[in-house]
Amino acid sequence: MEKSAYFKGRLLPYLLLVPQLVITFLFFYWPASQALWQSFLREDAFGLSSDFIGLENYQTLFAQPEYYKSMLTTAVFSSLVAVLSLSIALLFATQADKNLKAAPAFKTFMIWPYAVAPAVAGVLWIFMFHPSLGTLARPLRAMGFDWNPLLNGDHAMALVVMAAVWKQISYNFLFFLAGLQAIPKSVIEAGAIDGAGPMRRFWTIVFPLLSPTTFFLLVVNVVYVFFDTFGIIDAVSGGGPAGATTTMVYKVYADGRLGGDLGGSAAQSVVLMVIVIAMTAIQFRYVERRVQY
């Protein structure tokens, strides 16, 4: 992937790169290395002095039950959101892929939640399900179900998951629809001639052919849940009740800001970076190879 025709400028290419490299060093490499460095330090309460303490921040971190809890919360949260939003979006996309007159209109209606900010989505959902004033919470409580996401951790988790799924459906829908439309009609017709009904055709032909899209979306969704749901969680539950919705990213924020434990927060940042880099590596290494075409 190289151009055969190019310029030979000596100074110009460096000048063209300067803006991006300066921004990248200033706001990416410098802070990232600071995080790494800070994770080996202990700062006093006023931030006046700091000592090098080696791996102590990491030892403290991995001795904390709350940290494992936030890992578990992140795992539960991301698998629920990924599975639900992918399957719901796939259901809608397969319907929109049928030869319907109104399909373009449906497409427009389905995609716009992508534009809603996560924090705003969180506010909309807590408003609907607020225990005392929520329009949808009242019927739940009237049915005798003691719905209270402000006090019950499982309810809070359910609410955060719903808001996160709601926001992600449109993205998955778009990619699934594009993937479905890229499948040649002749393959499906061949299946029909062999006597396979719609369900059988879907599971034996369409779904396997869609696997590159599905795997791609799976990775994107997990990354989405890790990072972009911060606004949803902060708006809906603020990580609570009792840490029930504190994901790893939320804990980085909460420990650094409210707790003022910058060293511990930095150590968490480093652990997160390692996880993200590992996930990206897995994406490049395995996913692309295993997928059936």
Binding site: T24, F28, Q34, A35, F227, V249, M273, V276, T280
Partner: peptide, 12 residues
């Protein structure tokens, strides 16, 4: 830089 969103390195 593609791999690490700003959320990971907020305090630094």
């Amino acid at each position: 830089t593609l791999m690490l969103p700003v959320e990971v390195r907020i305090y630094p």
